[in-house]
């Protein structure tokens, strides 16, 4: 009866952007990114990638509710870079990782 609508899986909630940022009111160089329509698939890899950056002091993610299609990524840096840059860098290196793996995989699949 109170099941979420199917379209909520694919369409952004009204008036929301795909990625939203809220600066932390108490801590310097810290903030929370809310990414709509994503889940643990991306949340976990982004967090693990952020943690590999020495300039990132804290990185964590949560999916606040299993029926709400959004995740929150909280980042605190040491001030050398902003949370934005930290997130950008980690997304870029993840992209490179996956691209590299895909190229390797396709090359092998073709030769078999």
């Amino acid at each position: 009866m109170n099941a979420p609508e199917l379209h909520e899986l694919f369409t952004l909630p009204q008036g929301k952007n795909k990625v939203e940022y809220e600066e932390d009111s108490r801590i310097e160089f810290a903030g929370t990114f809310t990414v709509h329509l994503e889940d643990h698939t991306l949340g976990n890899i982004i967090r693990m990638q952020l943690l590999q950056d020495d300039r990132v002091r804290f990185a964590g993610y949560k999916a606040p509710h299993p029926l709400e299609q959004r995740i929150q990524v909280k980042i605190q840096t040491d001030g050398q870079i902003s949370p934005h840059e930290a997130l950008m860098n980690s997304l870029e290196s993840l992209k490179i990782t996956f691209k590299g793996l895909q190229d390797q995989f396709e090359k092998q699949a073709k030769s078999i």
Binding site: N17, K18, V19, Y21, F33, V35, E38, T41, L42, H84, L87, M88, L91, E92, L94, K95, F98, K99, Q102
Partner: peptide
């Protein structure tokens, strides 16, 4: 996966 990451990156 690559596309998802790229989409987010474009929107930051």
């Amino acid at each position: 996966l690559t596309k998802k990451l790229d989409d987010i990156k474009q929107l930051i």
